[in-house]
Each structure stands twice: as C-alpha cells, then as structure tokens.
C-alpha cells in the first residue's frame, strides 16, 4: 500500500482514525458511568488521562469492586507503553518549550503509529510531524465528544445488563487486544496471562488478577530472547 503523502491525505486519515476511536469512546463513556463514576469523572479521564486502555482498565477494576490502588496500578502499567512512544516521538516531533507539554498529552497509540508511518515524508510539513499532530488532535476531539455522548446516554439507561453492556465491555477488550496478537510470543503471552487471570479470580482480591496477568507478560518479556521489531 502506497502511503499517502499530501497534507490532505494525512488529514483525511487522521479524521478517519478519530471517527474510528469515537465508537470506542462511546463505549468508554457508558462503561465509566455504569462502573460508578459520575459524568465529570468519566470525562476527566478522557480529557486529562487520554489513553484509552488505561482509562478502560481503571474503570474496569473499580467497576469489578477492585481497590483504588489496584485500579491505579492497572492504569499505570497499561500507560507505560506511552513512555517508549514518547521517547520515539521526541526525536520525530521535536517540540520546544510549552508545546512539549501538549505533544506529551497527545502521545498515544494512534498518533505514534501515524507519525511513524509518515516519518519519511517529503518534508516536515507533510511528514511524520504533521501526521502526529493531526492524528493526536483529531483523536482527542472525537474521543472526548464520544465519551460525553456515551456517558450521558448510559446514565439514563438503567440496568446495564439488560442491554448486554457487561458483555459489550468484555467484547471491547477482546477487540482492543486482537490486533496485537501478531506473533507466537504475543499469542503465548496472551494465553498464559488469560489463564493466570482466570485462575486467580477466586483466590485474590478483585483487581489483582489483572495485575498478575500483567506480571506474566513482564516475566515473559524479560526472559524471552528479544525479537526484532520496529
């Protein structure tokens, strides 16, 4: 596939990605209020935390009856991947002064992927730098608007189980992790983490099974011979 190089093409992709995450944002807004957060807290996560998987994990653990500490730990562990993203984007985007603070906030899966995809553009104006900002801003706007819609809609919806919302949450996590099952190591990690998480449910406090599943990934990541990736 030929990567689009014109500004318009990048912008079109950025808006497309924004629309894509919007569907997920509606789910997040709904999950936030059904997990016991109010609309303001749910919205604060989308604006201030702005990293989907961590947001889902936080409300997922709280909704399952986990402690604040396990919820925070799950969100931080999932948010850790933004650190290598930011390291990479730092040399690509090269923000100066206060724009560093904004670039940091917009550093997520989508903006990083778009930045890398267009890294070798013809010049800075239509290259990775532009793709990073366009995608980051687009996703931020759509994600927050969608969260508000989902939160407002779900706060008047009554019992979430009647609408199958609890199953939608499980399905959402499956869809979120699915594209990451790229190689045998990824699939082995997923299978083992799933089994450990499942086995731990009855034996440890809510929230901890998720952290144990994360620990499985950490051990596998540290002990396996690193494979060559981007």
């Amino acid at each position: 596939m030929q990567p689009p190089t014109s500004k318009t093409a990048i912008l079109r992709d950025a808006v497309g990605i924004g629309l894509g995450v919007a569907s997920y944002g509606v789910s997040f807004g709904a999950l936030g209020v059904t997990s016991g957060l109010d609309i303001w807290q749910t919205q604060a996560l989308s604006s201030l935390m702005f990293t989907g998987a961590s947001q889902f994990a936080l409300v997922g653990v709280l909704g399952a009856g986990g402690s604040a500490l396990s919820a925070i730990a799950a969100a931080l562990l999932l948010g850790f991947r933004n650190f290598p993203y930011a390291l990479r984007m730092s040399s690509l985007v090269r923000p100066v002064g206060a724009s560093k603070l904004i670039a940091a906030q917009l550093t997520i899966d989508e903006s990083t992927a778009m930045g890398l995809a267009h890294e070798k553009g013809p010049d800075e104006a239509v290259g990775g730098r532009y793709a990073f900002w366009a995608t980051g801003i687009s996703v931020f706007v759509f994600w927050n608007a969608a969260t508000l819609i989902g939160a407002v809609a779900a706060s008047g919806a009554g019992d979430p189980k009647v609408f199958g919302l609890d199953a939608a949450i499980a399905a959402g996590f499956v869809a979120l992790v699915w594209p990451q099952f790229q190689g045998p190591l990824e699939r082995r990690t997923a299978a083992l983490a799933f089994l450990v998480g499942l086995a731990a449910i009855s034996f440890v406090r809510p929230g901890l099974p998720i952290l144990l599943a994360g620990a499985v990934a950490l051990v596998i990541g540290l002990t396996s011979k690193p494979s060559v990736t981007s």
Binding site: A64, R81, A193, P206, S224, P226
Partner: peptide
C-alpha cells in the same frame, strides 16, 4: 528487552481484563 516488555505488557493486562470481565462476579 525494553521494547519487548513495552509491547507484551498491554497484551498481558488486557487478556487479564478479558478473563475478569467475562467470568468474574467479585471473587466468584
């Protein structure tokens, strides 16, 4: 190992979340 851990950590946590979100009701 840095990038490998950064790549695998979300996979482990999210599949753990799937297990809990699909099968758990508290500790049951």
């Amino acid at each position: 190992h840095f990038n490998q851990v950064a790549r695998l950590l979300p996979i482990g946590l999210l599949t753990g979340l799937i297990a809990v979100q699909t099968f758990a009701d508290g500790q049951a």
